[in-house]
């Protein structure tokens, strides 16, 4: 499912709203989530899951093509932990 397919499904269930508004809402929700994580905060959606940041320590890596050593600074990466309802639902249908 892509973002536009998601928008279409939501729009079909909210016929009282303009398609354009549903599209803007989806865009806004994803932007809110990205903005939250990029400001060092977590996202907690009950029944879906939580997004947090995991820290990666600084290390010396290698360019796989040239074998050259490169210094990699400490950084954060987004991490998703599925919530209870999502975990159960993906396992319900065998």
């Amino acid at each position: 499912m892509t973002r536009s397919e998601l928008t279409e499904k939501l729009a079909r269930k909210h016929q009282q709203l303009l398609y354009k508004d549903v599209e803007l809402a989806v865009k806004s929700m994803l932007e809110q989530m990205s903005r939250t994580l990029s400001s060092g905060e977590r996202i907690e959606i009950r029944g879906f899951g939580s997004f947090t940041l995991h820290r990666r320590v600084a290390r010396v890596g290698r360019n796989p093509k040239t074998g050259e050593a490169v210094q990699l600074d400490e950084k954060y990466v987004p991490h998703f932990k599925p919530g209870k309802e999502l975990r159960e639902r993906v396992n319900a249908k065998k």
Binding site: M1, T2, R3, L6, K9, L10, K13, H14, L17, V22, A25, V26, M29, L30, M33, S34, I45, G47, F48, P78, E85, L86, R89, V90, A92, K93
Partner: peptide, 26 residues
């Protein structure tokens, strides 16, 4: 309702074993 619906569509897709691709997000 839109916020609730948004996450419900994501759960439903995953329940149906359908992967989700949200460009720019993940």
């Amino acid at each position: 309702e839109l916020v609730e619906g948004f996450f419900e569509e994501l759960r439903t897709a995953l329940e149906e074993k359908e992967p989700i691709k949200l460009s720019g997000f993940g």
